[in-house]
Design a protein around this nucleic acid. Structure first.
Lengths: 146, 146
DNA sequence: TTTTAATGGAAAATGATTATCAATAAATAG
DNA sequence: CTATTTATTGATAATCATTTTCCATTAAAA
């Protein structure tokens, strides 16, 4: 079973467990989230869902994203100068690389992180609970285009 | 000479070099920025400057912060759910620890970072130009209060 | 069939930041 | 030291796009 399908089932399960109803629009949103690699915005989810359900409302996307976030099935990446982006595949803290040209966001495979939180706790006395690690640059595609 | 004074001179120098006028309000803002440890917001700078210059306008703080940012004398930390915070002491990318209770922001001494960008470049093919690394938790003061 | 959550469409809120402009004062040359 | 120029200040109004709210209609669940 492909990864996106596993994620969809997991999310549907979370919805059912919490007495949320399974609507076609909801499933379409889950599908987009489970299949997206670039961390879509609400607007982008909206555009994709509309290809199958042309009457879908933007408000519906917002409401469903909020539900999934509450159920911890969605990681929200807020940007002060851009709209929020969502990660439905790894709904837990992890580093991201952000292309400053095409705005796509990817998950790097990175190892050197685990120690960092420990070092910080020792260094600062903070009880670290979460992190947000963004690296900005130009992706291979956009480099090639220039 | 204490660190804050060195920073103030550096910032005044940058202003002069770029034909900006040295006003008392401007100096008061630089002083707050050079002496602050917790990465103040515009509002916080405003409150502090007003103790010496009660007629200072919030707009003046905004305008001066923008000037200093342009001159690369100030690091701006934007938050999607909170107002911007400013670092006048280390106006270049570096990790931060953010207290989720009192909202203070500190600079940890951390070593394990240098490699990360290299590993990312190799891993993703991105040409990394900058980063934003925030660790969230509860500071020692707020832990003690609970 | 009944209950009530979810949807769709539009309007409203949000609140930090930016723009405006008359009044003030820093810089500089004579 | 004085005059001139023009950047800066202060007070307020305007902006901005995203996100939230509203409510009548629709449809999922049992």
């Amino acid at each position: 079973m492909p990864d996106p399908e596993i994620r969809m089932r997991k999310m549907v399960e979370a919805l059912r467990e919490n007495q949320y109803r399974i609507t076609p629009q909801r499933l379409a949103i889950l599908k987009v989230l489970a299949e997206s690699k670039g961390h879509p915005s609400v607007e982008s989810i909206y555009e994709q869902v509309k290809t199958n359900f042309p009457t879908t409302s933007l408000a519906t996307i917002y409401k469903n994203v909020a539900v999934l976030k509450d159920l911890h099935q969605l990681l929200e990446l807020g940007f002060s100068d851009d709209s929020n982006r969502y990660d439905g595949n790894k709904p837990y803290d992890h580093p991201h690389v952000v292309c400053t040209v095409c705005r796509k966001i990817l998950d790097p495979d990175i190892s050197a992180l685990a120690d960092m939180t420990q070092e910080l706790t020792r260094e600062t006395g903070f009880a670290i609970t979460r992190h947000r690690l963004d690296f900005f640059g130009i992706c291979p595609d956009c480099q090639a285009r220039q």
